[in-house]
Design a protein around this nucleic acid. Structure first.
Lengths: 250, 250
DNA sequence: AGAATTCATTCTGTATACAGAAATACGAAA
DNA sequence: TTTCGTATTTCTGTATACAGAATGAATTCT
């Protein structure tokens, strides 16, 4: 078992505990339903109970763990429906962000940034076989595109909410990239996704707010399809971040 | 200054601290930008620092306070735009909830509950002058309607998110009721709002999902109008819960 | 008088001690 | 062997002590 270590030296104990706990949960070392014993975690992570408890409160707000009536916390379990809904919520909020961007207008410089992301993604996916470096580049550009879009809404509250729902690992923008790669439909899906990106940039530029909103909603529905495909076998599901939290129905 | 007391005896210190702090912030005793001194609050609320800090972490997640870079928390300030956006986010999420309810179908019994809320509201607003009891009845029925609608989505994640955004006092379902009452347009607005309620129930019953979604979005836009009306004078703005957090622009 | 610097105070982040409640294991009785 | 009751252990919620950092005040120098 890998020891949990501080990668960064300058961070607070609370952040250390938060990252370590999130890691343990997402990687499945703490399984759904498991009670999280504070003393065990104190030993394992190497912080005292105070920052650990602070981290637990934050994780509960994030939705990864839930309070046990008799006290303490347990790791949450997610059904396929839960994941589906989380994706739809993200799509709805990103749709609102795109609409705001289109209605309120954005500087050409920011649009150019979006276009650069689209180009970068184009360059990585139009190849016969993506290697690890391609994946990293793709992941980064995709995350950046979605983060940028949220920012362009100009609404701090909306940015916050999108970040919150995207913090559920299986609802993040790039949750299904790895799973996709192992599918035969892989390249086609990535091409379609990037076409959505291209179209929403165009819609924002033309101030077509309804179109911008609809595109981002449809974009999230690609994730719905990926989810269904990934759920078909444990092998592909294992490639989805946070898959340890998802219980497949019998 | 009213002393902060435990109303319920059986609740935890953390809950005591949370309720007390929320009260102080919403009622404006702690003003926007004020640093929240833990020791002062310990003295004022009568709990130790540990549960107080837990409550602070939760309030930060709720969005009422924010971390100060150098440590500690300060009460957040909200612009008119922030409030506007919070209302729009709530409307968008409630729209999604209504759509889910329509798509997935709900039992007649639950629909009947919704209709009872609509009737109750009808009975309270079709009178020349609403008294305090009418207000309380209205408030209760309105909150219940919105809570029920969230439930009917059948999505725990969505219920959670709606509850979260509605926890901002000025974004709650009934935030503008008191302010409305002091406006000449008062009764007309309440009648329109309840017509929205009636229409969304009908849409859900007929499985008209797009209509159900659109209605709830439009419903939230009534709050937009109320916000603008309330912002015109400090007197009406003071009637909005959490108004102390809203700074009117010069 | 104004600015800079130093010192004292205050505050937060963290660790730890303690008490009451919950969970578990053990033993006795049917 | 199974079930019920009891005792022990473990756990969480809370209070508090401590250290380093930040803030503010006072003093000194220009």
């Amino acid at each position: 078992m890998a020891a949990v270590e501080n990668v960064e030296r300058a961070q607070s104990q609370t952040v250390t505990a938060l990252l370590a706990l999130r890691d343990l949960i997402v990687n499945g070392e703490l399984k759904s339903g498991d009670r999280i014993s504070e003393l065990v975690m104190v030993e394992r992570i190497g912080v005292s109970r105070t920052p650990l408890r602070t981290a637990l409160v934050k994780l509960e707000q994030e939705g990864l763990i839930e309070e046990i009536p008799s006290g303490g916390y347990a790791v949450k379990a997610f059904s396929e429906a839960d994941v589906f809904d989380a994706i739809e919520i993200r799509g709805t909020l990103e749709g609102l962000a795109a609409r705001y961007a289109a209605e309120r207008g954005v500087a050409q410089m920011r649009l150019a940034e979006l276009r650069r992301c689209v180009e970068t993604i184009d360059n990585t996916i139009h190849t016969d076989h993506m290697n690890d470096a391609d994946f990293q580049t793709y992941l980064h550009a995709n995350e950046r595109f979605h983060a940028l879009l949220a920012e362009l809404s100009g609404s701090p509250a909306l940015i916050r909410e999108i970040e919150r729902v995207a913090r559920l690992p299986f609802a993040s923008a790039s949750a299904f990239v790895l799973a996709e790669a192992s599918l035969p439909e892989s390249q086609r899906i990535l091409i379609i996704a990037n076409e959505h990106h291209r179209a929403v940039v165009e819609a924002i530029e033309n101030r077509e707010s309804a179109r911008a909103e609809a595109i981002m909603r449809e974009h999230a529905r690609l994730s719905h399809r990926n989810l269904m495909l990934a759920m078909r076998s444990q092998k592909t599901l294992d490639l989805v971040p946070g898959s340890a939290l998802i219980r497949r129905r019998a």
